[in-house]
Design a protein around this nucleic acid. Structure first.
Length: 308
DNA sequence: GTATCCCGCCACGGC
DNA sequence: GCCGTGGCGGGATAC
């Protein structure tokens, strides 16, 4: 079921030229970036997924993808149905350290211990095994708890599937890792690059190393996505004929919004679509990754062991 | 042609 | 039965 309604609402101004669908406008990385712009501020308390989805112009389903990943790195925490609390970037080092500690603990347990624990063999846990959150944690552990510097998503998928891998499962797992990698790239925890040996697309852990300055410029070059001033992912939808519709009709369509939007904080200003920027250079806007890195830097002092 | 990943269907569990 | 949640894979887009 999907209770969302917003994705089919074109958000174009009168003067805007007809927009062409581009998947980059709807990417998880961009959504994540916009999510931060909305909530990374003083006084952010509880975040309602419906409100967030409305403001960001995405289906609620996409919010689940984002918050599940963000929860794995401590940025948000689930409080109640549909409600998450904003923890902030300062929580990332702590979350990463917990992941490492958890990994060590798990390594110290025998397989028999795990099998004998009824909680870990339940049906619910089977679902949890495949969750985006757990996949995120395992993906991060690949970097933090091993010596590998470059991780190929397909290799990571194979690693996580273990014995049970077949081509379909591998494809599915790889798809999810693409989703995760996009969000983690947005956070600057990892960087998309080419493996130095085989030139295949690989991801490299940046973590706090990026803060030190050696990778300080990473963010202006790290991603080819466009994180501009736009705070919503409204507008274009794949297969949406609206994306090519008459601007007058677009305006009419834009005027529609669900009753209750205003109460939910819906703000038309948010929906103004800026000129499309197709530059490869990244404009992170007010939510520059170096700001995130400052947060991480401040709170990571004193961390020991593996460089986070 | 391959890599990437958006999109929404639908299963599941709680109420 | 309804609703929140989120796994999953089809297929569109990027390269």
């Amino acid at each position: 079921m999907d209770n969302s309604y917003s994705s089919s609402s074109p958000q174009l101004s009168d003067s805007a030229p007809p927009q062409i669908y581009s998947r980059k406008d709807k990417s998880l990385g961009l959504l994540c970036s916009n999510f931060f712009k909305l909530f990374n501020r003083e006084g952010t308390g509880m975040i309602g997924l419906d409100v967030a989805a409305n403001k960001l112009g995405v289906q609620r389903r996409r919010m689940y993808d984002v918050v599940n990943i963000l929860e794995s790195v401590g940025i948000v925490a689930r409080r109640a149905k549909n409600q998450y609390s904003w923890k902030g970037f300062k929580e990332i080092p702590r979350a990463l350290k917990e992941l490492m500690a958890l990994n060590e603990k798990e390594n110290g347990r025998s397989e028999t211990d795990i099998e004998n624990n009824p909680l870990e063999s339940s049906k619910t846990d089977c679902r949890r095994d495949k969750s985006l959150a757990l996949l995120t944690e395992n993906f991060i552990k690949l970097f933090l708890c091993s010596d590998v510097e470059y991780v190929l998503l397909e290799d990571a998928a194979k690693e996580m599937l273990g014995d049970s891998q077949n081509s379909t499962a591998l494809t599915t797992k790889t798809r999810r890792l693409y989703d995760i990698a996009n969000v983690l790239s947005c956070l600057n925890l990892i960087k998309k690059t080419n493996h130095p040996e085989n030139r295949k697309t690989a991801y490299r852990w940046l973590g706090c190393k990026a803060i030190t300055g050696s990778e300080g410029s990473l963010d202006q070059n790290a991603s080819e996505r466009i994180f501009g001033a736009e705070i919503t992912n409204y507008s274009l939808k794949r297969n949406n004929p609206d994306s090519l519709m008459d601007p007058r009709l677009q305006k009419k369509a834009r005027m529609y919004h669900k009753p209750g939007d205003l109460e939910n904080g819906y703000n038309d200003n948010i929906l103004e679509h800026p000129p499309r920027n197709r530059s490869k250079a990244i404009d992170f806007g007010p939510f520059a990754p170096n700001k995130i890195l400052e947060h991480i830097n401040k709170s990571s002092s004193g961390l020991e062991d593996k460089e986070l």
